[in-house]
Design a protein around this nucleic acid. Sequence first.
DNA 1: TGTACATCAGTGAACGCGCGTTCACTGATGTAC
DNA 2: TGTACATCAGTGAACGCGCGTTCACTGATGTAC
Lengths: 205, 205
Amino acid sequence: MRKRGYHHGNLRQALVDAALQLIEAKGPTGFTLSEAAKQAGVTPAAVYRHFEGREDLIAEAARQGYEIFADVMQYAYDKGQPSALAAFEATGRAYLAFARKYPGHYIAMFESGISVNRTPELAAVVRRAWDVLENAAADLSQHIPPDRRPPAAMFSAHIWALSHGVVELFARNSPGKQSPFSPEDLLESGIGVYLRGLGLIGPDD
Amino acid sequence: MRKRGYHHGNLRQALVDAALQLIEAKGPTGFTLSEAAKQAGVTPAAVYRHFEGREDLIAEAARQGYEIFADVMQYAYDKGQPSALAAFEATGRAYLAFARKYPGHYIAMFESGISVNRTPELAAVVRRAWDVLENAAADLSQHIPPDRRPPAAMFSAHIWALSHGVVELFARNSPGKQSPFSPEDLLESGIGVYLRGLGLIGPDD
DNA sequence: TGTACATCAGTGAACGCGCGTTCACTGATGTAC
DNA sequence: TGTACATCAGTGAACGCGCGTTCACTGATGTAC
């Protein structure tokens, strides 16, 4: 992290990276602009050359997280093709994998309290991420008998909620840690039961 | 909130109530000991007659929340008897109802970052609350054909995660607000599909 | 290749603020006799 | 019923701290000629 002279070179991204690291280590509460500046080897005042303030820095960290998140979800979806079922299951797994691999981003996105509608750019990338899951759900719903087919938006919401709950309760420092099952197993089996309930997989799969 | 003289009468509980109100209004981050004291009509220093400090006050708020939570879950369970299915579904609904009715407690419990193992009393009441759900799951698993019966701890974890995810994403200020379905509908239908997947309710229920 | 100068990205000192916490204190309450 | 006194629950002033933010500044860089 040593400077290469008076000018940093890429301070903006260095600050985002520092913020992500601090948010991961201390939670969104513990994160301070001053400390991020210090970690990037720079005076707190320098931050204001690149961001409007503390909130703006967090929002950028979250935005980058959603960008990665959307890519990861899209990749999982594509990889599962042409099977609608495989694609859908892959996106569910991708949610947990993302939370595990990018904990700082995840916290900035879901636990820092920044509003999704803070800027149009942020809102757009959030939309892009969730659209992947909704598309996967819509594809899949084609395979459900129409008379018992729930709206795609509804069952993507179910899977999203299940994934989010598993992450929050079992993959992070919350009251659910004592479970004897890994988050991956919980999510996998939960989605399995759910899809069976929709008649999408047989009883013996 | 006016004082009745030099002595408050029930300052301890008044501080907890103030804390709950502030936590609900401003999030766990925004809550300050000084403000809670002010709201209770008292000097910040007075708080230290009743609590060890800021953290201790939040922990007590969370403890009272778990106490209520456990009671609510137990009540729902009892009310669903003797039907194992009705009892289980009722506990799921009770989770969401609790989050709605006691948002301050809910935040103190699940979003304030206090550790469940902070004190033995806290750990005990947390245990009591979750045991209700696990018992409901265990009762219900008796009705599943043994060869496809998942461990009770696993499927209570599924329902817990689903409930928690629905609350976090759709019943509070998170990125999921735009869903066209109410949290109650989402949870109800999600649990329905899940139980159908376990073979516990028929395709036409 | 060298010089003048505009632009940019940082510094460092200072600010006001509210925080959690401590301390010696004092007013109110309850009890013993 | 009245007085002395211990105990309790509050006050209010003070503290050190780190925060986010501002400001005038200066060192480094890049470009025109």
